[in-house]
Design a protein around this nucleic acid. Structure first.
Lengths: 339, 339
DNA sequence: CCACACTCTGACACCGGTGTCATAATGTGG
DNA sequence: CCACATTATGACACCGGTGTCAGAGTGTGG
């Protein structure tokens, strides 16, 4: 019963004394096959350590039980450090896939290069999940191309008007509102914002809008001067905050568009001998693992990554199955810690 | 020239006015095909947005240009937080795969459940990378089974004597030596160790051994009492350190088996009003991204994840190609920060 | 002009499954 | 006992490529 190479369904058929067709049916528990034959086949298959050849199976059925994840990195980020928020997402997406019986192909994309978005074209994956902040070079036109090719995909991130793709995202606007309400409650109305309030990054923009609008509802106008641009890295947050301080701009609260930015901001504040939270309260966004490790522990707006991963996967699967799917907005959550 | 469904090589053949065989050859730039035909075929293929069907191709060639990554989680860790060190590894492995033209299938394994290690059996992947700390339930016997099946795989982690698998690992023993040398240099010889010095986690054990041996070379014996067990989480490090303090155990330096443990330890020290690094110097292990964010920034032993990822992938590929491969030991690196 | 090498192309089997169709075996009612 | 439904099985085409082999077409030397 020893073999060279992997066993095929023909081997099983031979040893079980049935035809290969029957083996195939038996292994997939088709009701067409007799209970006893089924048992016999399963038994032989187990003994030979037989596994269905996915390539053959996929080829025939024209589907792969595999999803592809394209992770877009912040172009300026150094290559060994990946945004921890996306890593959390990756974890939950993997798990969600596994739960649905799908495998996951992971690819990190440098947005500068050509996308490696041909997983579906080449029948490697049934659908694609796009993960990344911001609006990359040619993002729109590339999405358009995916749509034209009738590729099944879902995006993580802000729903942009006029972009007809299916998205799952955190309610960034609502998160901004939560942050504002929290600071107002603590009478900190002289606020700085570190992030990017332009349209480059729709997520950051929405967070800022929700933040600003809430203040305005309380008849407080945020000063344009107290804003600094930053991308989602610790370093960028540090330098942006540093430049505010250097320009002698004062504030008693700071809202950062992401936790990494917030962590960098806190470093800059502490270096300038500004006490957190006594002098300046800080609120971040994402609730990355490190947020609870830094000291003082970061107050932040949590995105529910577990749920997000599940929604991305289940929306994508529904799309693949041809069901009607709507873009999904997930509620954020204020986590009050020590800043 | 508009099609329903995806184009096949027959479609290309039809439009290019050649046979399907020639299309296949032309697309793979076989020297057998005439330059002009080659160009023509490529042109038509591009126009039809043709992509080779990987399933068909893999089925025929019996290889998948895909590697699988099995990530074993610390069983006690809450599901949304994954050890950041492994996430860094994941990033570098992805990149290394891409560079070699391989795709990567990612799977998170709960070690309690059955391994999902049949990627090779089912021809989904040409080889497997195993990533995880420690010696899990049935780890040995499962590896044995992989070996018997002649599955190609490499492991990250300590080389355990008598385990005939191919590994890539950081020189954990050497890292422990570095940590010890650093502390001795600063005259901190009254050291605590937080981790697991038993054999449960061979990586942690090797780190401790290198640490201890270096002290002994300086005629200093580490007190068994100043050790506490912890798994690689912030929380575990916190509680372990807390219990040392509660037992009135004093020390002026602390070596943590991982950065997460170190970060938890620092929190416990600070809560007990013990100053870091003035009262207690702390050295971690891994150099996870958060290590540089926490304050004071963590002094730690760096593992070169970029190189590690590359070595895992290239060793595995060599193994697949049937070349002779040796287990690889990577040199660690002391990163001095503020603890 | 023929033998032979060389270049390029097409026909065809093949990879290992899945789905369809035909059919053998058995049971059931009239 | 025959007509017919029901159940279980095998034969076979098929998915879309790749590799082998045979042969057409052209060139070169004797």
């Amino acid at each position: 019963m020893k073999h060279k190479g992997k066993a095929t369904s023909f081997d099983i058929a031979h040893y079980a004394g049935v035809s290969q067709s029957t083996v195939s049916r038996a292994l997939r528990n088709s009701p067409l096959v007799n209970e006893e034959t089924r048992r016999k086949v399963h038994e032989v298959a187990a003994k030979l350590n037989y596994k269905v050849d996915k390539n053959a199976s996929n080829l025939r059925t024209q589907q792969s039980s595999t999803l592809a994840l394209l992770l877009f990195e912040d172009p300026t980020t150094d290559e060994s450090k990946i945004n921890p928020f996306f890593l959390s997402m990756l974890g939950s997406i993997t798990r969600a896939c596994a739960k649905e019986g799908y495998d996951l192909l992971v690819s990190f994309q440098s947005s500068s290069q050509d996308w490696r978005a041909d997983y579906e074209d080449s029948h490697r994956a049934d659908g694609i999940i796009l993960l990344g902040y911001g609006d990359y070079l040619d993002y729109q036109s590339r999405l358009q191309k995916l749509l034209e090719q009738d590729t099944k995909f879902v995006c993580w991130g802000a729903k942009v008007d006029g972009r007809p793709d299916l998205t799952v995202s955190c309610d960034n606007y609502g998160g901004g509102q939560l942050a504002a309400a929290h600071l107002i409650e603590h009478k900190r109305t002289d606020c700085a914002f570190i992030g990017d309030a332009s349209h480059h990054c729709p997520e950051f923009f929405a967070r800022y809008q929700g933040f600003k609008d809430t203040f305005e509802k309380h008849n407080i106008t945020l000063s344009e001067r107290k804003m600094a641009n930053a991308i989602s890295t610790e370093d960028s947050g540090y330098h942006a905050t540093k430049s505010l301080i250097a320009n002698n701009i004062r504030f008693n609260a700071l809202f950062a568009a992401s936790d990494l930015i917030a962590i960098g901001a806190i470093r800059a504040l502490q270096e300038a001998n500004i006490k957190v939270p006594n002098d300046v309260r800080v609120v971040g966004f994402d609730n990355i693992p490190a947020a609870s490790y830094v000291s003082p522990a970061l107050t932040t707006i949590q995105q529910n990554t577990t749920l997000a991963g599940q929604m991305l996967v289940s929306n994508l699967l529904n799309l693949i199955r041809g069901e009607k799917v709507e873009s999904t907005l997930l509620p954020p959550n204020l986590i009050v810690r020590n800043t």
